[in-house]
Computed example of a mutant assay.
Amino acid sequence: MANPLKLVSAQPKGMPGVVASAVYAGGRRVLEIPIEEAGEWSRKPGHVVWIGLHEPGLDLLRRVQAEFGLHELAIEDALKAHQRPKIEQYGDALFVVARTAQMVEGRIAFGETHLFVGRGYVVSVRHGASTTYTPVRERCEAAPKALSEGEDFILYAILDFIVDNYMPVIETIQEEVEEIEDSILTANQPQNQIVRLYQLRRDLLRLRNAAVPLVEVCRRLEQPGMPGVDAAMQPLFRDVSDHIRRVQEEIESLREVLAFAFESSLMTGQSQQNEITRKLAAWAAILAVPTAVAGIYGMNFDVLPELHWKYGYPFVLTIIVLTCTWLYWRFRRKQWL
């Protein structure tokens, strides 16, 4: 008699939306299964079905819903993919929403992951900018003893992976912020640098709004009585909470640095404008002297004192040069020129 665990039911090739669909027993992958067999396998003692979906359509979600009896509201949330990070309990099943983030062309791109967790199954639904969870699956399969804990360990592994992926985003921004700090007091500061500072600060605010609500999600998973979460797994979710708080601290620190850099940029720009204004005012004062003298002698009067004097013209030119030179010296001394 053939061992039923050796019978492989082939996954349909090119099925849109399905990244992986496998059943595990004792922490080891048993076989790949189609969606239509997932519910049957999840009800077998000691087996866990792990399905990964990427931007599925309504038809595929309905098929998954039929296999596991997922709640209608959770299906609607998973289809819309514009949800705030949260955890909802529907009977003996959990619905978790987490926001993902990664750098795309210098900006933080956000995505969503929706997790359906119940006795004997985990379904992950990815939308938008999100790294594939294949590394998570491979890491779990490499540790069969931990994976044998079941669906709550898979939930922990995915949440931990999401939170860990926040750090490369923060580190990339941190490197750019350090470069901006080095050039913040340069004489010729480009306008696009100020715009970039504002963009980074706004992106970090969105990242904080995506990460911080996960603290509440993990806090609820730490509490006793959550369906599908064993007491032995609760410290792992507490560890994820610690990682999120670290991410929050890094974000707040970077936002303070960016705020200082933004203010410094504005102050530097204002200082440069004031310096240009002083220079223009100083040169205007210097040029006012010959302009005034030339204006006086340009009037049609015949009784000007030096008009018929032999040395009147050189005398006036000398007065103009001396006055302008004195003004130039005074402005230079006051650092207006």
Results as ranks from 00 to 15, higher is better:
Leu5Arg: 12
Leu7Cys: 00
Val8Gly: 12
Val23Leu: 12
Tyr24Ser: 06
Ala25Phe: 11
Arg29His: 14
Gly39Lys: 13
Trp50Val: 09
Trp50Pro: 09
Gly52Pro: 02
His54Ile: 03
Asp59Phe: 06
Arg62Phe: 00
Val64Arg: 01
Ala66Pro: 05
Phe68Thr: 01
Gly69Met: 01
Glu76Gly: 00
Ala81Lys: 07
His82Gly: 11
Met103Trp: 14
Ala109Cys: 06
Val117Gln: 00
Gly120Trp: 02
Val123Ser: 03
Val123Ala: 01
Val125Arg: 00
Ala129His: 14
Thr131Val: 10
Tyr133Ile: 13
Thr134Met: 11
Arg139Ser: 15
Phe153Lys: 06
Phe153Leu: 13
Tyr156Pro: 12
Tyr156Leu: 13
Tyr156Phe: 15
Ala157Gly: 15
Ile158Thr: 08
Ile158Asp: 09
Leu159Gln: 07
Val163Lys: 07
Met167Ile: 14
Met167Arg: 11
Pro168Val: 03
Pro168Tyr: 08
Ser183His: 14
Ala187Phe: 05
Ala187Lys: 10
Arg208His: 14
Ala210Val: 01
Ala211Gly: 00
Pro213Asn: 11
Pro213Val: 11
Pro224Trp: 01
Pro224Val: 01
Pro224Gly: 05
Gly225Glu: 04
Gly225Ile: 00
His243Asn: 06
Arg246Leu: 13
Ile251Gly: 08
Glu252Phe: 07
Leu254Cys: 01
Val257Trp: 06
Ala259Leu: 13
Leu266Val: 15
Leu266Gln: 10
Gly269Val: 11
Ser271Glu: 09
Arg278Asp: 01
Arg278Leu: 04
Lys279His: 03
Ala285His: 04
Asn300Cys: 03
Asp302Cys: 00
Val303Tyr: 13
Leu304His: 04
Leu307Ala: 02
Lys310Ala: 06
Tyr313Lys: 05
Phe315Ile: 02
Ile319Leu: 06
Val321Lys: 04
Thr325Met: 04
Trp326Phe: 06
Arg330Asn: 01
Phe331Tyr: 10
Trp336Met: 02
